[in-house]
Nucleic acid binder design. Sequence first.
DNA 1: AATGAATGAGATTTCATTCAT
DNA 2: AATGAATGAAATCTCATTCAT
Lengths: 187, 187, 187, 187
Amino acid sequence: MARPPKARVPLKQAALELFVEQGVHATGIRDIAKHAGCSEAALYRHWKNKDDLVVSLFTEHLAEVRTILEDAIASATDLDGKVHAAIKACYKLYDEHPRVFRFILLVQHELSRTLPNDLRMPQDVVHDLAKDAIKRGEAKGDAMVLAAAVIGIFVETAIFVLYGRLAGPLSRYAGPVAESALRVLRR
Amino acid sequence: MARPPKARVPLKQAALELFVEQGVHATGIRDIAKHAGCSEAALYRHWKNKDDLVVSLFTEHLAEVRTILEDAIASATDLDGKVHAAIKACYKLYDEHPRVFRFILLVQHELSRTLPNDLRMPQDVVHDLAKDAIKRGEAKGDAMVLAAAVIGIFVETAIFVLYGRLAGPLSRYAGPVAESALRVLRR
Amino acid sequence: MARPPKARVPLKQAALELFVEQGVHATGIRDIAKHAGCSEAALYRHWKNKDDLVVSLFTEHLAEVRTILEDAIASATDLDGKVHAAIKACYKLYDEHPRVFRFILLVQHELSRTLPNDLRMPQDVVHDLAKDAIKRGEAKGDAMVLAAAVIGIFVETAIFVLYGRLAGPLSRYAGPVAESALRVLRR
Amino acid sequence: MARPPKARVPLKQAALELFVEQGVHATGIRDIAKHAGCSEAALYRHWKNKDDLVVSLFTEHLAEVRTILEDAIASATDLDGKVHAAIKACYKLYDEHPRVFRFILLVQHELSRTLPNDLRMPQDVVHDLAKDAIKRGEAKGDAMVLAAAVIGIFVETAIFVLYGRLAGPLSRYAGPVAESALRVLRR
DNA sequence: AATGAATGAGATTTCATTCAT
DNA sequence: AATGAATGAAATCTCATTCAT
């Protein structure tokens, strides 16, 4: 078997770290390579170019979040359980890997133009959750409007912790945030 | 007397437009100047450098939003009226000047490191609103947590419109969004 | 009679000051004008351009030094008296206007290419002094070689004070420097 | 292994040459790169920026001069021999590499603000020589004042040759200059 | 295979000078 | 008359990427 690529993981970690600390554009290939302890050219062995690295980091972490979300939702049977589980699971991820969340926040708007349209996003998962709840009579209203509200409550609370407006860890707000979300969903 | 400044306003308009269309980093001084119909060097008479322009655009527009918010809140006496007025006023601004909102969205996280700490933000206004409502018995809970939720509902709905998940204009969601916010605030 | 030009003297002072503090190239027209309290365009009313200002500052101050030197030399009759008087007068000027000396030092080599050949320099005055002393039997050797040595002793001592290797004021070294110069001149 | 650096030496040579011919500020990165036969960007792999190149050229060549001086002084036992040897060695360097000397002359005053304080300069070497001579009874006076005089005689003679006031090569003045220096040192 | 030197293209910024008011 | 806004040209520097070793 071929030897495993040695520089891939360090490069990803270094990139995430520096992107979050300095911004994507302010971080050069040189920085990343130095931080990862390898050469600049090594990056091109694993990704086509810098943009490719950024996009792939984004989609990978987004998929991770989406999966966690989907698993949490599948783990409960009623809306109440699903919402609590979903928010708890995501906030746990955030507390364990705060950089991931910050990175997604930082690049989402900039990448929104470039991303493939068929990419399933966390927003889609929440939208489906709302649709399902409405169909089952657990929620009322326009599914997309409700999804926006729920995601907004969820995300902005995380942002408040990120910027120190709320004291961390974020997990401590999982309960109240879920309750707020449910109050919006139910009628 | 010296000739009156002629390039300042066109430069600001061109910058806002291009930043929103292409992203801040993808927009060069050259683009801005060409769009504004003046030389690249003209920019440096009015702002120290590109960053300075970005920050000054951001803070100016943020102050505008904040003022609109404050005025709307002052225009009503009870929580219900304040929330409806505030959201309606901001969504109106959004529909009339969508670029302003998009620009703020685009750069907020990247600028968060650079901004002066004493800058009063819309978040502070909403926080005060929540504190006040709690004191007057119109709302219950932690003011900052509530503020996060309200802002989240408000912002994410706008983002959903921005990206076409929800059909515009945004103003049509002012009522439902206000209702959701109030449901979170009240207990 | 026309009103006297108002900005000329402040501009010269500001230029000298800034050239000495930051270097000629690091000092821009903007700096000079701001320091002088007038507009950038005002400079062009008095000098053709920046280079013209630099050269004219240099030649004016050089002529000043040359005149002081000539007067001092003319004030005494024998070599001993001339040398003592010349060094004393120049070092006094230095202590009173240290910037002038530093400015000459700073730009002399850079201007050496541009200056008119027929410009009478302090070096020429000292050369004439040496020639004269030799003719009168007060000194022996090659006049130009002696002039170089005398000027070197004089200038380097000033530089040592300028950079703090020797404690100022420079005038205190006038006697010893003159004695050293005379020891070289006489045989 | 990576390709070996190919542009470093040509860049240094080109820079020295052009700095001396046109002045440091009149010489652009573009000139240097073109002269060195490489790209402008190559310079930035070896030096942080243009200033860094200038400073590093200066300190390297200054160290070279200082070493030659120290070796020459160490090669003789009495003051007379040391002074003759030192001046002869330096003037030989000058005749063989006139650019080095001219470069040091050109930038010394402009760099004086930037240089590290602990940098041992030729002036320090001569100062030590004077101190030692005084201690051994071969010279009398203040060591620093004497050092200034000796250096002045030495440098100004070189400048006179540089500007054509004295006919070259400089080496021909080594004897007389040493004699003048010794006349100042001894009492 | 892996390095890091070299590069071309372009970015931002600075500057002395001109010019409309 | 005097200003300072505007400019064109050039300067320095950065960057992602390629390539010789």
